[in-house]
């Protein structure tokens, strides 16, 4: 008797695999709504914190000098927006996922019937939404405070997209490829610390020891700032080809690692 009921459940879900671009887009939209509604008021608060952080850094950096030199002002004005763009994806993203893992909600999110790339793309969109207002306001304040003479090129749009992409994918890889949430927390904290003090984002690389500058040649953070300087100023930096290359490679590799880790079976 029980067997007959099981044989023909009226509510059986479809067993065919859904695929195709239409399905991908629906999944992307759903995941975007999922992320936005799970952050809700948080997103607003985060944007506020981002703005305060950016403005605070731009204004606070001047206090380290009796009279801030023009170059230092220019470097901090063009470096802080990079921090604005990557903090959400690189710091908060992994910590949210680590929290999910600790609370046991991670498997549920992982089991949602959406393509992994759609899920990643939706999260990327959220980090864009969270990062750009901070960047814009930081730049406005920098302009008012230092008059650094920005010359904004149209390349600012692809550059912003690329920087956020790589930052988010690094965070995404840390969140999903590292299984222990404690390790993720620790690595992201160290990463942010490194971004503020040990990568040439807020100050020129020549103010660091030579070996540290050479290490940074292979890491994405300093190059993100180079890209930002290239699109915001005229002639401050050269050799941007390498910067674009390094940042893109890091973004793609980390994205691949993350998406692969998301699909791993246990």
């Amino acid at each position: 008797m029980t067997t007959t009921t099981l044989d023909a459940p009226a509510w059986a879900p479809s067993t065919t695999l859904r695929s195709g671009s239409g399905y991908w887009l629906t999944a992307y939209r759903t995941m975007l709504r999922w992320h936005l509604s799970s952050l809700r008021m948080w997103l607003f608060l985060l944007v506020m914190i981002q703005i305060m952080f950016g403005v605070g850094y731009v204004l606070g950096f001047a206090l380290f000098f009796h009279e801030i030199p023009r170059t230092a002002a220019l470097w901090v004005s063009t470096g802080t927006p990079v921090l604005n763009l990557i903090l959400l994806g690189m710091l908060l993203g992994p910590q949210l996922v680590a929290g999910f893992k600790q609370q046991g909600g991670y498997d549920f999110v992982k089991a949602l019937p959406v393509p992994r790339t759609a899920s990643a793309a939706a999260w990327y969109t959220v980090t864009l939404i969270g990062g750009i207002p901070g960047m814009v306001i930081t730049l406005l304040v920098a302009q008012v405070r230092y008059h650094p003479g920005f010359t904004v090129s149209p390349m600012v749009f692809p550059a912003t997209l690329l920087i956020v992409f790589t930052g988010t994918m690094i965070g995404y890889a840390l969140a999903h490829a590292i299984t222990n949430p404690m390790t993720t927390q620790l690595v992201t904290q160290a990463l942010v610390f490194a971004a503020m003090g040990f990568a040439p984002i807020l100050f020129p690389a020549k103010q660091m020891p030579t070996w540290l500058a050479s290490v940074n040649e292979w890491l994405p953070l300093g190059h993100m700032a180079t890209i930002m300087r290239d699109v915001l100023t005229d002639g401050l930096v050269t050799d941007v080809g390498r910067a674009y290359l390094v940042v893109s490679v890091w973004g793609v590799v980390c994205g691949w690692l993350a998406v692969r880790a998301l699909g791993r079976r246990r």
């Binding site: 170059t71 503020m196 003090g197 040990f198 807020l202 100050f203 103010q207 660091m208």
Partner: peptide
């Protein structure tokens, strides 16, 4: 170490 990097 970090604060030293801030200055030219």
């Amino acid at each position: 170490l970090m604060y030293g990097f801030f200055y030219p």
